[in-house]
Amino acid sequence: MFLNQFLFLAAALFCIGIYGVLARRNGVLVLMSIELILNSVNINLVAFGAFHGHIGGQVFALFVIAVAAAEVGVGLAIVLLIYRNRRSIDVAEANLLKG
């Protein structure tokens, strides 16, 4: 088995995730796309762990999963807050940063 096949899969999922983040208007969908990106990173970690015969890759994949859980929690809280304030979770409408 080639190492590359895993890396390509990860790259593809990563780019799909990026597309999702950039193209979606719905806040929850943006969060889902971010999950996809994190997962592609995990594939890389585990694949390299297997490649080098080192267990650290798996450990870090686990850490990433834990961070992802935290990220989803806070992210959803923010989305809910935006929804409550604006009755909409369209990220395009959240443009308070406009200069």
Binding site: V21, L22, V91, A94, N95, L96, L97, K98, G99
Partner: peptide, 17 residues
């Protein structure tokens, strides 16, 4: 330059990626 600051996080992300 002001026009670049649209406040759209999506556009910032697009630029970043």
């Amino acid at each position: 330059l002001r026009r670049v600051q649209t406040g759209q996080v999506r556009e910032y992300a697009t630029l970043m990626f």
